[in-house]
Amino acid sequence: MNQKHSRSSWTYWTCLSGALILCWGSVLALRAGAACAETSGALIQEIAKSNGCVEFWVNRYQATIAAGIAAAVAFFALRPVFYQLYEIRKQSAHGEKAILEAFAKDVDDELDAVREINGGLFLISLMAGSFNAEVAADIPEDTIKEFESMRSELSGERRIVRTSDRRLIGSAELIQKRKSYIKVTDEYFSACRSYFQAVRIKPPTHLFGDQARNANLEIYKREAAKALACSKLHTTIANEIFPKIEALSAETWREIRRLERKGRGLLD
């Protein structure tokens, strides 16, 4: 359908150009006739030597007329070349669009992955009681198992971010932020795991009540402090990297839409 539209467009412009050339020739003829009626003096003798007034003016401006005819002939002769170049540009736009669409998918996948990781770590902090050492002993075993399950589920998202890091996707600033994000995310997961493992440590069997609760409190506090520090740092870096990936996605899709219009012949 696009090819038919392109050819009909070329036919339209060819017919229009031919009509304009005919109009131009007609105007020249009319102006020559009018000039013949208005000439006087020395021009009358020159016209008399010619075979008529129109022939006199045609001979006088034959260079201009020849140039116009040559331009018209060149246009019609080169029209297939112009059309071929036009089609090549369209095909090139389609090829660039396909490449950018694949790139945009990778960027959007990373954007979704970062969103899932950030949301998952937020839920983990809630499961950990916001890393409050005073309530660590009350965290049930089921919550710790849920953390392990969530950590496993997010491994795919973390792999996507690492793939983007290996492929160096984005600007130099985004690449650097991504490296920091991967590093602090790994440290955060490691700190959370250490924290939950500390929670699993049972107090000595000879202690009861508050003594049992406070027996491992120092261990809880130490691991909670590490996890809390990682949590704050991760939040800071996540808030920096997410808008940059989002901006890269928006910019890529804008370029895809431009190439799509170019491929349909709507842009020069």
Results as ranks from 00 to 15, higher is better:
145 K>L: 14
25 G>Q: 11
241 I>F: 00
223 E>P: 03
195 Y>D: 02
196 F>V: 00
258 R>S: 07
132 N>W: 03
208 F>S: 13
252 T>C: 09
177 K>T: 06
179 K>N: 10
217 L>A: 05
180 S>G: 13
209 G>S: 06
239 N>M: 05
255 E>Y: 07
228 L>N: 15
209 G>E: 08
126 L>R: 00
209 G>M: 04
4 K>S: 10
113 A>D: 01
222 R>Y: 10
208 F>G: 06
157 E>W: 04
146 E>N: 15
121 L>G: 03
140 P>T: 04
208 F>Y: 08
200 R>Y: 01
164 S>L: 10
10 W>V: 11
265 G>H: 05
118 N>P: 01
28 L>W: 07
82 F>P: 03
181 Y>E: 02
218 E>A: 14
187 E>N: 08
47 I>Y: 01
210 D>R: 15
176 Q>V: 04
30 L>W: 12
73 V>M: 03
173 E>F: 00
231 S>T: 09
81 V>K: 03
161 V>P: 01
4 K>M: 07
150 M>Q: 10
101 E>M: 11
146 E>M: 14
70 A>E: 00
4 K>H: 06
67 A>E: 02
263 G>N: 00
201 I>K: 06
158 R>Q: 13
62 Q>I: 13
63 A>Y: 05
5 H>E: 14
263 G>M: 00
100 L>C: 03
189 F>E: 13
122 F>G: 06
168 L>K: 12
46 E>K: 06
157 E>H: 14
81 V>D: 02
137 A>E: 13
177 K>E: 12
104 A>R: 04
187 E>Q: 14
204 P>M: 04
119 G>T: 03
156 G>Y: 10
147 F>L: 03
251 E>C: 01
174 L>F: 00
92 S>N: 13
195 Y>A: 03
111 L>I: 06
66 A>C: 08
2 N>E: 12
89 R>V: 13
193 R>D: 14
246 E>H: 08
180 S>F: 05
122 F>S: 10
22 L>H: 02
65 I>L: 15
35 A>E: 07
97 K>H: 06
87 E>C: 09
167 R>I: 08
112 D>V: 10
